[in-house]
Structure formats: structure tokens, C-alpha cells
């Protein structure tokens, strides 16, 4: 009797050697590719913290707009209300410039008004508003990971 042919996947030997073999090889390739891809996704970032203290409320003059360079945000005070506006254009990530009555992006010409709403240009959304709270030691606490609705102020 002839041994069952390797080329016949319906035979028992064919099944084990061909089908399972190829499955195992495919699984090995897929698993190592997935592991390599996962390897490339960093688990720890050494970027600056998204939460930071921006000094005491009285550091800011009434009705003032202050650009915090390190954090790339604007801190605005209007009377006793505070808010924090992102300086990063929602289009492609350039830093916007303060203009007389709003913000201009130098990269692709988006124009935002005082509230950060898009007036013209390719930006898909207005500038982000970040949460501003008062810490126990009476400092302004900005959290760039917490977005708030436009028009939400910290009132002191």
C-alpha cells in the first residue's frame, strides 16, 4: 500500500503536515509582525506634563492676554474671569499668532476670533479651550488633557 500523499490535504498526514504546518507558519509570521508593530508604539512618553500651574491669578493684569511660550497656550483674564486657549492651530499644528482681534495661523492662513472660533481658513475646529481651576495654594491650574466647552470660564 502506498503511503498517503503529502499533496492530498484530506489525508490525515496531509492535514497535519500541510494544513497545520501552513497555519503554524502563518500564525508565527502574524504574531511576530504584531509584536514588532506593538514594539514601535511607545508606552512611556518623556513629554512635558499636560497639567501645569500658571502662577497666581493676580500675576495677570485685568483684561489681558498672556502667551505662555513653554506650554503653547494663551491665558486670558477678563475682570475676574479666567480661561485658557490653545495656541496650536487645529488644522496642522502650527502655533498661532495673536492679532488685534483674534488669532492668525501663519502656516495656512486660518483666522480665529477672540473666542477661538474659526472665521476663515482651512481649520476644521476652533482653538481648544482647556480647563482652568484654582489649586489649594491659590494658583491657576491648567490641564491641557481636559478640554472644556467654549465659553466656560473660571470665575473668582
Amino acid at each position: 500500500m502506498n503511503p498517503p500523499s503529502l499533496n492530498d490535504p484530506t489525508s490525515r498526514r496531509g492535514f497535519f503536515q500541510l494544513t497545520l504546518g501552513w497555519l503554524a507558519a502563518g500564525f508565527a509570521v502574524a504574531a511576530s509582525s504584531a509584536a514588532a508593530m506593538r514594539f514601535l508604539v511607545p508606552n512611556v512618553l518623556y513629554e512635558p506634563s499636560l497639567r501645569f500651574k500658571a502662577g497666581q491669578p493676580d500675576d495677570y493684569a485685568e483684561s489681558s492676554v498672556t502667551f505662555l511660550e513653554e506650554e503653547r497656550v494663551f491665558l486670558l483674564r477678563q475682570g475676574n474671569t479666567f480661561r485658557c486657549l490653545s495656541a496650536i492651530c487645529t488644522h496642522l499644528g502650527c502655533t498661532v499668532n495673536r492679532a488685534s482681534n483674534g488669532y492668525h495661523c501663519p502656516c495656512h492662513g486660518s483666522v480665529f476670533n477672540e473666542q477661538g472660533t474659526v472665521l476663515s481658513g482651512p481649520a476644521p475646529r476652533g482653538l481648544e479651550w482647556f480647563s482652568v481651576t484654582l489649586s489649594k495654594d491659590n494658583r491657576l491650574l491648567v490641564d491641557k488633557s481636559q478640554r472644556v466647552n467654549a465659553g466656560q470660564y473660571l470665575v473668582l
Partner: peptide
């Protein structure tokens, strides 16, 4: 300089 994009970039 992450703070100042050249204008135009």
C-alpha cells in the same frame, strides 16, 4: 523653535 513657526511655514 516650537513656539514660533516661520511665517509662512
Amino acid at each position: 523653535n516650537p513656539i514660533h513657526p516661520p511665517n509662512p511655514a
